[in-house]
Design a protein around this nucleic acid. Structure first.
Lengths: 127, 127
DNA sequence: TTAGTTGCAAACCATTTGCACATCA
DNA sequence: TGATGTGCAAATGGTTTGCAACTAA
């Protein structure tokens, strides 16, 4: 069978995602992880993201055609994408009330929902 | 300067998108358009989708890492992605009330929002 | 006629995979 | 030591682009 090893690379990548204020794109993960591990290769980043995803420790989020990754287990949350600086933040309040099982007009049975807000993040709004 | 010509290919592709019940992925656009225009090439589909997007006649929607295209000017709406059959539908009711200018907790100024509902479409729920 | 468009094949580019070397246990 | 993991380079696969033939106006 297939054992899974703990390595420096995996630890660093997982830590980078934990420390982020929102989901990160692959190049962001790579460059942040490289400040701790200069030699880190992009292939390892992809392999590790896939591994952590399979282990449900992180999960992918697609925003504007770009796949980002975030730590799992943050509970129900949504995202805010800043139209000025492009950064993505995690929001912990939810603007919709659609419990699983809600039947939407037309006969659509809702099991989950995803919300993305677009606008100016606090930094950009202040400038 | 650059004039834009009306062609069979462009008409067919635009019509395919108009007729769809929701945003279509590139392979869906290609195969549907090919029933009218067997020789249609994938490059033309990509070029036309880009052209129509630039003209604001359609616009891209990213769902689960896949870029889809839908006719513009349908007014405010959202999407429902069926977890059984994978089809995507356009919904004309909106479950959130966040007018542009709303300030979200944390100081995020909301300009727009996007909602995707996941669950069973009427067909799959009935089966 | 002729600028604009198309299909094909080559080019691109982000992501994945093969392999020899390195490393965790 | 042996099974895993890593970095590098090659392979993939979806999307874009160059080019010669085609076509709308």
């Amino acid at each position: 069978m297939t054992a899974t090893r703990s390595t420096r690379q995996r630890d660093v990548i997982a830590r980078v995602l934990d420390a982020a204020p929102g989901p990160l794109a692959v190049p962001e993960v790579l460059s942040r992880a490289q400040s701790d591990l200069p030699g880190l290769g992009i292939a390892t980043v992809y392999r590790t993201l896939k591994l952590l995803t399979d282990q449900k420790r992180i999960h992918p989020v697609t925003l504007d055609g770009e796949t980002r990754y975030e730590t799992a287990g943050k509970g129900h949350h949504h995202h805010f994408s800043c139209t000025r600086c492009g950064r993505v933040f995690t929001l912990h309040t939810c603007p919709v009330a659609l419990p699983s099982g809600t039947v939407y007009p037309g006969g659509f049975i809702v099991e989950a929902h995803e919300v993305t807000l677009y606008g100016q993040c606090p930094d950009c709004a202040g400038a």
